[in-house]
Write a protein that binds this DNA or RNA. Structure first.
Length: 272
DNA sequence: ATCGCCTCCTGCGCGC
DNA sequence: TGCGCGCAGGAGGCGA
């Protein structure tokens, strides 16, 4: 479900919904078998800790606590909601805060997971070790970086963009969108990228991620912000989910090819 | 090392 | 209406 803009939207929502100096009173785990088991003594680790703030790295949502970091990956269908009116199937975690607010993690497919990382060296955790630059970090995510990373790669551009070692946060929607904006076919080999094309791709990845964050993410069916609102970026999608529709630029029909098992949308006229 | 296929899991929409 | 099939926003693991 969530790519970087959706996780960032959830992060911002949580930051607004949780008052400064609030703390985690109790933690209830209804199912421990998420993608990875909920860690041993997870509840005790979190309980009693003050919530310092909310961060994000790649698609990881991070609750910064006074003694450590509560890491939450939303997988495909994970959501955090404040005070949902009635309990639902697939509510796996519940955090009761000192303020009385209740935050509930719901995840039907259970591809998401949680972890608890102790300070001070939580940033060295295995979850972050292999990650590339943030797409909105202009100083690290550069044309030169992407160009160098792509040398010798025979994989498709689309798979290359979705590989979190090259750039983080780009998933199936935004990979198709950025490639459309850059005029590059998703099937093209990464190693054949020219320096100018690498630069263009960096610009378009940056732009699409930035605009999607501003729109509150993309709601295809079940993505929700922490307060329950939908995102709006789906209205700005050029190719994702538009197979057979006329390209907004040239009116040629959008096509859909499968690349490493994922639907990949492109305009056969605008992209080469 | 690199690449692509498979897998985890549930729900939904479609065609018959 | 009901059923089976394919597909869905992620990404680790494995075999080639």
């Amino acid at each position: 479900m969530p790519e970087l803009p959706e996780v960032e939207t959830v992060r911002r929502g949580l930051a607004e919904l949780v008052a400064p100096n609030d703390f985690i009173k109790t933690v209830r785990v209804h199912r421990r078998d998420l993608r990875f088991p909920v860690p041993f003594r997870f509840e005790q680790s979190l309980a009693g800790q003050k919530i310092v703030g909310f961060r994000r790295r790649a698609k990881y949502l991070l609750w910064e606590l006074d003694r450590g970091v509560f890491l939450s990956h939303l997988g495909m269908t994970g959501t955090w909601r404040r005070n949902p009116s009635n309990s639902k199937l697939h509510d796996h975690l519940e955090l009761q805060l000192g303020s009385g607010d209740r935050f509930v993690y719901n995840d039907p497919r259970r591809f998401g997971f949680v972890d608890y990382l102790e300070k001070p060296d939580w940033e060295d955790s295995k979850w972050f070790r292999h990650l590339g630059p943030e797409p909105i970090d202009r100083s690290r995510f550069t044309g030169d970086h992407l160009y160098q990373r792509s040398r010798g790669k025979s994989t498709s551009l689309k798979a290359f963009l979705m590989d979190q070692r090259n750039v983080v946060g780009v998933g199936n929607i935004y990979a198709s969108e950025a490639l459309f904006l850059a005029g590059l076919r998703p099937t093209r080999k990464a190693g054949r990228l020219t320096k100018a094309q690498a630069l263009s791709l960096v610009e378009e990845v940056h732009a699409v991620i930035q605009k999607a964050i501003e729109a509150g993410g993309t709601t295809l069916k079940d993505f929700r912000q922490a307060g329950g609102e939908t995102g709006y970026f789906q209205q700005q999608l050029h190719v994702y989910g538009r197979e057979g529709e006329a390209c907004g630029v040239c009116a040629v029909a959008i096509e859909n090819v499968t690349i490493t098992g994922r639907s990949s949308f492109f305009c056969p006229n605008c992209q080469s």
